[in-house]
């Protein structure tokens, strides 16, 4: 073996290997080529085995050529790898494609009951004005539910509350959240800003607009100068919060034994905006709650001096507010608990 022959073999190997790399179709062919040419038992090693027959002074020359060949082949392999790798990745991604328009894997969705949720929204609005939540019992006595609210026994106003009586010691199911006023006054000194949500009961045949169990939210504010103007301002803000900025409101006289003066609070009909439609009995207005200045008798039963302090109270049916906000026309839907109905709420 002489130097020229060896050099020629190496050049031939380089030319063939770089040619094959450039033509290789895929990574596997390149891997095989690499092993065949550059591997421990590869062709380059085989050629260099003949170096032992050369004179000592020629050996470094062959070594230099061999390194150049190795570098050239590696470069060609690298170049070929990045060429076929891109195509292979593309092919893989193509193969992995799915129909992205199919629906996802369903996750069970729950929802919150519109009445409980509406009560929470009401409380949130009044919380901004410093009203804190209290709760009273649903089983009440005549004294707290009626007498201390200035409704003596045999008072004709009792007709406003058809009552369900219990077989326990003169107890009844509270007909409104108003007895909570008395309980709060027994618990706190003015300034009082209290909100009382809860379940109420009446002897009332159930139809689209009457329920024997329903939810109310009561409000009570008492301080030295709390006036009807404060009540009006607060309720205006409430109406705007629940029924939209700019929703027109009006106060008109009402009657409750536990407030004096008493008012009904109306908003412009949410259906016809005052054009007078069947939903508002052609008046253009819808009553959303009753209110008034706490009757001095009620303050006294609450242990508060009515000469020094005054205040207002209001009470609303949560179902009424929910009906108007969510376009519900039948009260019965709330307690029928048909998931097709409830599922429509957040």
């Amino acid at each position: 073996m002489d130097l020229a022959q060896l050099t020629a073999d190496l050049d031939g190997l380089r030319d063939r290997a770089t040619g094959q790399a450039a033509a290789a179709p895929d990574t596997a062919a390149l891997d095989q080529l690499e092993v065949e040419v550059l591997g421990k038992k590869g062709e380059l090693t085989a050629i260099l085995r003949g170096i032992g027959g050369l004179p000592a002074e020629d050996r470094p020359k062959v070594g230099a050529v061999a390194n150049q060949v190795r570098a050239a082949v590696e470069a060609a392999l690298g170049e070929a790898r990045s060429r076929v790798g891109g195509a292979e990745l593309e092919a893989r991604l193509r193969a992995e494609a799915v129909d992205v328009t199919t629906p996802g894997r369903p996750i069970r969705r729950g929802s919150l009951h519109p009445i409980v949720e509406t009560a929470r929204e009401i409380a949130d609005v009044f919380a901004q004005f410093g009203f804190v939540v209290y709760e009273g019992p649903e089983i009440e006595d005549d004294r707290t539910n009626f007498q201390m609210l200035n409704i003596p026994p045999d008072h004709p106003a009792r007709d406003l509350w058809d009552t369900l009586y219990l077989d326990v010691d003169q107890r009844l199911l509270r007909t409104h959240t108003s007895p909570g006023q008395i309980r709060v006054m027994h618990q706190e000194r003015p300034p009082i800003r209290a909100l009382l949500p809860g379940r109420c009961f009446r002897y009332e045949a159930v139809d689209a607009s009457h329920a024997s169990e329903f939810f109310q939210v009561e409000g009570l504010m008492v301080d030295e100068g709390t006036s009807m103007a404060d009540l009006k301002g607060l309720l205006d803000q409430f109406a705007h919060a629940m029924f939209g900025e700019g929703r027109a409101t009006r106060f008109r006289p009402g009657y409750y034994p536990f407030t004096e003066p008493s008012v009904a609070f109306d908003i412009l009909c949410v259906i016809c905006d005052g054009a007078k439609c069947p939903a508002c009995s052609r008046t253009g207005w819808m009553t959303i709650l009753g209110a008034g200045m706490v009757h001095p008798v009620v303050l006294r039963y609450g242990g508060i001096d009515p000469e020094r302090y005054q205040g207002f109270a209001f009470g609303m049916g949560v179902e009424r507010i929910a009906n108007l906000r969510h376009a519900v026309g039948d009260l019965r839907l709330y307690m029928e608990d048909d998931l097709r109905f409830l599922g429509a709420f957040r």
Partner: peptide, 11 residues
């Protein structure tokens, strides 16, 4: 009756 926002002491 005027409409005012209550501005008395908070509980």
């Amino acid at each position: 009756v005027p409409s005012m926002t209550p501005d008395t002491a908070m509980p």
